[in-house]
Simulated scan of single mutants.
Amino acid sequence: MDRRNQSMDDQSQTSQMRLVAIPRLAAGGRWRVEAMRAYSEACLLWFTKGQGRITVAGLTRGYTAHNAIFIPAGVMHGFEVGPQVFGTAVFFGRDCAVTLPKEPHHLRIRETFVAQELNVTLDAIGRELVSESPANDRAAQAHLGLLGVWLERQIAKAGPDAQRPDASKRLVARYTALLEKEFRSGMGVAEFAARLGVTPTHLTRCCNQACGRPASALLHDRLIFEARRLLSETDLPVNIIADSLGFTSPAYFTRAFQHQVGKSPTAFRRTK
């Protein structure tokens, strides 16, 4: 398979639902959660302690404890995860039958009993996933269905977003969606802007307004994340990785990688 034609990075090694402690997501390096990337399945981030910033579809917001952030499959995102950040990431699986939102949602849960409802549901899912009791898989799916209902109700309760995305934020969301599909193509910001029907200057201005970063930074972040992932998880030669990510030469790839990471691809791989 031509790696340039893969639609999103293969973060998920299983199609099954699972719960992961948020600090564990960064166990292989904070770049695994902070860099722009997308999952091939829907994900819910439930923060129970700490604070930071999260960027979803090109829009950066702050998060604190008792924030639930739903991210559909294929939506580019990244978030800060410091030593005081705790919570649970719910991965719904690639073939999830539960009805889930089509768009990202950032829910700030203020009622204690609503947060407790979510904690109880997550605890029940976790128990069933490790249980050896008969029909534990069906029980876990049933609780996952209740989680879907919880999400739907909290989104309805929140009502229409008081700060609905303006034209610039919608453009950035379109850019990140296109970027996730085409970041391996070798296109630069000018080509992405042309595909979106805007100028590179306007695209960069909108990205700066939405997330405090230019369009080129989002592109480079996505590329270097994928490069680090491939260097960490595969034995592919550096020149093959460079070609699969659309770099014109291994030397250009090495310079770009070293500029962002602080070490060469080979040195980075040795540390893993």
Rank of each mutant, 00 (worst) to 15 (best):
F79Y: 11
A124H: 05
L236Y: 07
T121Q: 10
G145Y: 06
T99C: 06
E226C: 09
E132F: 11
S40Y: 01
R127N: 11
G246C: 06
G186N: 08
V98M: 06
Y175N: 07
M8L: 07
E191T: 14
P214Q: 07
L44P: 09
T176K: 02
S40V: 00
E226M: 11
D9L: 13
T112K: 15
G148L: 03
E132P: 01
A167L: 14
V189M: 07
E41Y: 00
K102M: 13
Q154W: 05
K272S: 08
D9R: 11
R228Q: 15
A65D: 03
C207L: 09
L179N: 05
E128T: 01
R4V: 00
Q84K: 10
A162I: 14
R170A: 12
P200W: 02
D243T: 10
A158V: 00
L196T: 10
F92H: 03
Y252W: 00
S15W: 02
H77W: 01
T248I: 12
T64C: 10
R110G: 04
T55C: 12
A256F: 00
V198T: 14
A215D: 00
R255G: 06
M17G: 08
G29K: 02
M1D: 09
E41K: 03
I155Y: 08
T112H: 15
V238S: 09
W31R: 10
I224L: 15
L19N: 03
L107A: 08
L129F: 04
K181E: 10
H105K: 04
H259G: 06
L129K: 02
F79K: 02
D10L: 13
E41I: 03
A26L: 07
W150F: 15
A42L: 00
N67Y: 08
L19C: 06
A194V: 02
A167V: 14
R195W: 03
L107T: 03
T99R: 14
L219N: 04
G197M: 05
L107I: 09
T271F: 13
T48V: 10
F92R: 02
P23F: 02
C207E: 08
Q84W: 00
L223H: 01
R18Q: 13
L245D: 07
R18M: 12
G145I: 08
V81T: 14
R228G: 08
W150T: 05
R127Y: 07
S40C: 06
V149D: 09
S7P: 15
L59N: 09
A140L: 01
R108A: 13
E132T: 14
A193K: 01
A242M: 05
A210F: 03
A256M: 10
R110E: 12
R61E: 13
R61V: 09
F183Y: 15
N239A: 15
A89M: 06
G186C: 09
A21K: 10
L147P: 02
E180M: 15
P250K: 05
Q141C: 11
A242V: 04
L231I: 09
E132H: 13
G78I: 06
E233D: 14
R170H: 12
F225G: 08
A251W: 00
R32Q: 15
V172K: 01
R30T: 12
P23G: 06
L223E: 01
R269G: 07
Q51V: 00
L100Y: 06
R255T: 15
R127Q: 13
R138M: 04
P104M: 05
I69E: 05
L178Q: 14
G52D: 04
A97N: 04
P214I: 07
A97D: 10
N136Y: 05
H66F: 03
T271W: 11
